[in-house]
Write a protein that binds this DNA or RNA. Structure first.
Length: 479
RNA sequence: GGUGGGUUGGCGGAGAGGUUACGCACCGGAUUGCAAAUCCGUGAAGACCGGUUCGAUUCCGGUACCCACCUCCA
């Protein structure tokens, strides 16, 4: 039996780094709040996905491949989705609002999968959709009403925050402080300004389900309580608790606070999530990413610009998840440079065994930066099998070196032109006509082709982002 | 107003109360007809003010500045 590994995680609930002890080492259970599916995932959405992907890889490494249950939901009923569908209908899209919603959510889920796959994030074990768990949500709401934690008012069902004394504990706020600082208008039917919606009425054209409180739809928070209950807390032995719940730190309040209130009131004997993991936010060139600043972009935008998913992932891993992360062009350049080097070195091995210090780094509150530093050490030390195994472990490498790092992306015709120019250059060098040789080399450089002479054999060459086939043709024509 | 995070060398970014982080860039050298790549090496830090200590960038307190959240938000 191997030495038991001690994983430490910073638990937002206690604000301390704690030794992680699973409720059941044979089934470690994770829940990550997933996306509301109304549009492409922006770059910030990728952060918790990558953090949890690293976490689940680590847990599977420590507890066994099949000893982890990872759940990440899709929120497919939400006012933003309705608004997006209305916008499309007004723009001339065919179909009813409900049809447009169904199309949009299905399309967005496909995009989300494509984009997160590209970042090397493994699919969770379960990806429940909110609309598949309406009966469970209704049952939980009815239960909360029955226990005196929720009340009905004007077609809505509201959670009564005053009925749950621990409300605000996760985010370190008191109900009174929050009311004092509140800036929003409060619906008149709320008993307390902080009470939040569990169920709300739907118009005829909006998605809605029949319920004891009239036709309506769930509030945002109840889905996570209902789905984590259904998928992670079936086992009565473990007192209605599971191991780790996570998301962006902006979800801590109100979303996670409300989930705790709902779940702990519905299951007073359980602890709901024992460990809460929150990632800090993303910035772009030192500023918040926002549409108004013009620095807003999606994962797909970056992939379309030719930034490989592995490079994006590497940039995320450079920063510890609990620190604000700055996305910069400089980091992209550095990540690409480093990964290209590592991939070339890794090609010499097929190992899948990670270097123990890399594992040790992750064990300490997912210190991904330290893990990368250890990879640098392997690279510099020439331990390529351990490097390859570690890159695989970190999700930076699959079965093969990514195409972008391996093969220059030239078409056959372009390759022919480059080879022709290189042949002319080598002829010039043979006759010691270095002026011509240098002119050809500079011409290739100007066209965006980097040439590397090798000790024996054909020179290697690769494309840069500045590649211009017209300039290349000109260089050839000038001969 | 409330809550949380940050501030380290040119840039990015860690750990550790006393010993080189690391990467990128730069500089010097080797190698190369040139270029690229590679290798060797040097230098450079800890926002500010106090406190604890033999000794703090690392612990404690305060100040300043930046960011986020408190309203849908990863």
């Amino acid at each position: 039996m191997a030495e038991p590994v001690t994983i430490r995680l910073t638990n937002s609930r206690t604000r301390k780094k704690e030794v992680f002890e699973p409720l059941d080492p044979a089934n470690v259970r994770l829940y990550l709040c997933g996306p509301t599916v109304y549009d492409r995932a922006h770059l910030g959405n990728a952060r918790p996905v990558i953090v949890f992907d690293v976490l689940q890889r680590l847990l599977r490494h420590v507890y066994g491949e099949n000893s982890v249950t990872y759940v990440r939901n899709f929120t497919d009923v939400d006012d933003k989705i309705n608004a997006e569908a209305r916008r499309r209908r007004e723009a001339g899209a065919e179909g009813t609002l409900k049809e447009l919603i169904r199309e949009r959510t299905a399309e967005t889920i496909r995009w989300y999968h494509d984009d997160m796959d590209a970042l090397g994030a493994a699919r969770p074990d379960h990806e429940p959709r909110a609309t598949d768990y309406i009966p469970q949500m209704q049952a939980m709401i009815a239960d909360l009403i029955g226990k005196g934690h929720a009340y009905e008012a004007e077609g809505h069902v509201l959670f009564d925050v005053r009925s749950y004394p621990a409300y605000g504990q996760l985010s370190g706020r008191s109900v009174d402080d929050m009311i004092a600082g509140a800036r929003v208008e409060v619906a008149p039917f709320k008993r307390d300004p902080m009470d939040f919606v569990l169920w709300k009425p739907s118009s005829d054209e909006e998605p809605g389900w029949d319920s004891p409180w009239g036709r309506g739809r769930p509030g945002w928070h109840i889905e996570c309580s209902a789905m984590s209950d259904a998928l992670l807390m079936k086992d009565p032995e473990h007192d209605k608790s599971f191991d780790i719940h996570g998301g962006g730190i902006d979800l801590m309040f109100p979303h996670h606070e409300n989930e705790i209130a709902q779940s702990c009131c519905a299951n007073p004997d359980g602890k709901f999530a024992r460990v809460w993991l929150h990632n800090e936010m993303l910035q772009v060139e030192g500023k918040k990413m926002s549409k108004s600043l013009g620095n807003f972009f999606t994962v797909r935008d970056l992939l379309d610009q030719g930034i490989p998913g592995e490079v994006i992932r590497y940039v995320f891993l450079m920063t510890h998840y609990r620190n604000p992360m700055d996305w910069t062009a400089e980091k992209v350049r550095e990540a690409k440079h480093t990964l290209t080097k590592w991939y070339r070195q890794s090609g010499l091995s097929t190992s899948t065994q990670p270097y123990q210090p890399v594992v040790d780094a992750l064990v300490d509150d997912l210190n991904t930066h330290e893990a990368l530093a250890q990879c640098h050490a392997l690279s510099n030390g020439g331990d390529f099998p351990a490097l390859r195994g570690s890159l695989t472990f970190l999700g930076l490498m699959g079965d093969a070196i990514p195409g972008w790092a391996r093969v220059p992306g030239f078409s056959d015709a372009e390759t022919g032109v480059v080879r022709d120019i290189l042949w002319q250059r080598s002829r010039a060098r043979e006759r010691q006509d270095y002026a011509t040789a240098d002119r050809l080399r500079d011409g290739l450089k100007k066209a965006g082709v980097i040439v590397r002479d090798v000790a024996d054999g054909e020179p290697e060459f690769e494309k840069t982002p500045e590649f211009d086939v017209n300039v290349l043709d000109q260089v050839q024509a000038d001969q």
